[in-house]
Amino acid sequence: MNEIPRARQLRVVACHGCGLVCEDTLDESGNARCPRCGAALRRRRPDSVARAWALLIAALILYIPANALPVMYTRLFGRGGESTIMSGVIEFWRSGSYEIALVIFIASIAVPCAKFLTIGLLLTSARRRSVRAMRERARLYRLIELFGYWSMLDVAVVAIVSALVRFQALSDIEPRIGILFFGVVVILTMLSAMSFDPRLTWDGDDE
């Protein structure tokens, strides 16, 4: 279907560490090392699909407490209250800061959800060795690599405001347990995306 040769057809393998193209001797020897950087040569990331699924499911489970539990406690002029990620977004929207509400909504809610769906889709279609929309799936993978880490935004915001607003008697902002769950969710989805081997998307094309 496509005339550009793939590494397996030419019996070469690219080092994951430094990119050097080496002769593929993995069939005979089982384990070979890159002569330039010493990393183990592999055709695909090890246990890519299983690891990506495991990390993704763990992230999904923790995403529930991350949204349900408060991420921040705010006490201003005597009025105190806890807020979750969603209630923070709504508060920004009500106070007229539409841009900020949108930024936080995208970073904390839209991006993580899009990531769950995308990684899930990539994993299922790679397992089925689907040949549909391979270019688009490859592009999706690069998109989540590019934008995935922006979800850390909320963690940074909570850190900065709670460092600043510390006027003991009058006002105080403190982080709450939800932000920990949320931080872990972001880390797990990043690890899941890294475990997924984008080459699998194209492996259905081999036959």
Partner: peptide
């Protein structure tokens, strides 16, 4: 082991190029 410094392999799909 032979290496090919004039080749590059796409790290996203394993296509080989000079």
């Amino acid at each position: 082991m032979k290496t090919f410094s004039d080749l590059i392999v796409c790290e996203h799909c394993d296509s080989v190029y000079r």
